[in-house]
Design a protein around this nucleic acid. Structure first.
Length: 268
DNA sequence: GATAATGTTCGATC
DNA sequence: AGATCGAACATTAT
């Protein structure tokens, strides 16, 4: 989404903006958002974990979380607003950048760009970005060592590593042949290295495939993703494990109130 | 009608 | 103090 938007709307002028009111959590409301964005330029599109960072001239950044059903993409000039549109930025060329979110689990925040790092770590409580290659093996190991919680639950916790969602947590563990029930601190050095590698591999492949569309996700161009075609366990309860030569059956369990899919035969 | 869904936060309870 | 669990948020689809 970030990459699509960088290509299509970076540098655009924000003629005017509007947003639904329950949308803006920090620090104020749609009135402030409107005032801050009017006439500014959308200078940069960044990301930390699952948070999109829209950098605007005038010293402000808009942080957007998407929850389960959030979408953001530019509409061609003249196109009607789709249902559940919560925020609209009118751009200089007549296009409208829209944020829509049927379930309203998403969240928009407004922060001073100077306070960005502080906000991501503080209000957003984000840990190290899961795709950031800067995290050393030793640092990754140290994160795991502190926690006896099941590894699946650990991967989902954005305060440890930011950016892994429920689909990718199951997919990563399947590829790493690790049971989702293993306590995070029970992995040996080899397993930790494998896991760290597969976190980056699976996320990178998913990004290359434009994300996973089960029902709502769309790219920053408003199109469905393609990674759902490559899922090995997620959503496949009762079906055959896709690992070559395994022959096991994918099982669904619930951990921390979320579905986990795994193959008990090849994931230990 | 019941259930589940790509997510996070809150309060209660270890 | 820190971890962990269930409920809650709102909407759609099966």
């Amino acid at each position: 989404m970030r990459r699509d938007l960088e290509r299509s709307v970076r540098g655009a002028t924000i003629v005017r903006a509007r947003a639904d009111d329950p949308l803006i959590i920090e620090p104020v409301t749609s009135r402030k958002l409107k005032r801050v964005l009017r006439g500014q330029t959308l200078e940069s599109l960044g990301r930390c974990g699952k948070v999109l960072i829209l950098g605007v001239s005038g010293g402000w950044s808009v942080l957007q979380r998407f929850g389960m059903t959030g979408q953001m993409y530019p509409l061609p000039a003249g196109a009607p607003l789709p249902p559940h549109t919560r925020m609209v930025w009118e751009l200089g060329d007549g296009r409208r950048l829209v944020y829509r979110d049927a379930r309203r689990f998403g969240e928009t925040r407004l922060v001073k760009t100077a306070d960005l790092a502080e906000a991501l770590a503080g209000v957003c409580r984000l840990g190290h970005d899961a795709l950031d290659a800067e995290l050393s093996a030793a640092e990754f190991s140290a994160l795991l060592a502190d926690h006896a919680t099941p590894i699946k639950t650990f991967l989902l916790d954005q305060t440890h590593l930011a950016g892994i969602g429920n689909i990718y947590a199951s997919e990563i563990l399947h590829r790493a042949r690790l049971s989702p029930l293993r306590p995070a601190n029970s992995l040996d050095a080899q397993e930790r290295r494998l896991l760290q590698r597969l976190i980056r591999e699976v996320l990178a492949e998913a990004v290359a495939a434009q994300g996973t569309t089960i029902s709502d996700y769309v790219t920053g161009a408003g199109e469905t993703g393609g990674f759902q075609k490559f899922l090995r366990v997620y959503g496949r309860e009762g079906e055959r494990c896709r690992r070559r030569g395994c022959g096991g059956t994918v099982k669904r369990i619930v951990q921390a109130q979320r579905s986990t899919f795994y193959c008990p035969k090849c994931q230990k």
